[in-house]
Write a protein that binds this DNA or RNA. Structure first.
Length: 184
DNA sequence: CGTGTTTGACCCGCGC
DNA sequence: GCGCGGGTCAAACACG
């Protein structure tokens, strides 16, 4: 229960262009904040799940941020735009469960909610967020478990290619909150 | 006034 | 082919 600082220190550091901005950098025990940890990936190699996942994510990030849908492009609303020459690249997503009473785990980025849906087998709705940074297509969805409403499942999709906007002070504030809920 | 949320409708993939 | 469930859009609204 002491490693949570490690867990959150990583994303607090301004990411370099090639490194992950999220907390994937520390494979060992980096997730002690979470009770359970599971990755949702359709075809994740059984062996080096982490590395494979990370490479996939880099790939998808390049595709997303460089060409697929550029911000403000009237060309092909995302809906019909899915047709283009784009292959069926199923974006790798990774999720982790966190014990928290607040749905919004402030990771320092700015998120804009763009949807909310009721999910089957879940009494709580799932919220969809998107990073508001220009050109950043990172999405995340937050969902609370019916079984244990103290657990929040956050699923990230894509990677940020820009520095965090908020100060770390606020971050530690949130962190201190989480420590309380995590200690259970 | 700018930014973020709410909310219903729409789209699409997938299983039957 | 159809229905269901999940994901997204976008207009209206709320809030600083």
């Amino acid at each position: 229960m002491e490693n949570y600082q490690t867990f959150f220190s990583s994303p607090a550091i301004p990411p370099t262009s090639s490194s992950l901005s999220l907390n994937m950098g520390n494979p060992h025990g980096a997730y002690s904040t979470t009770d359970h940890l599971q990755f949702q990936n359709n075809k994740s190699p059984p062996a080096n799940g982490f590395l494979g996942l990370m490479s996939d994510m880099e790939v998808s990030n390049n595709i997303n941020s460089s060409q697929s849908k550029s911000f403000g492009g009237p060309e092909g609303a995302v809906r019909s735009g899915t047709k283009k020459g784009e292959k069926k690249i199923r974006k790798p997503r990774y999720a982790f469960q966190t014990r928290s009473q607040v749905d919004i785990l402030d990771d320092g980025y700015r998120w804009r909610k763009y949807g909310q849906k009721a999910v089957k087998n879940n009494k709580f709705p799932r919220s969809y967020y998107r990073c508001t940074h220009q050109g950043c297509n990172v999405k995340k969805q937050v969902q609370r478990l019916t079984k244990d409403e103290g657990i929040v499942v956050t699923t990230y999709e894509g990677m940020h290619s820009h520095p965090i906007e908020k100060s770390t002070d606020n971050f530690e504030h949130i962190l201190s909150q989480m420590q309380i809920y995590t200690s259970i």
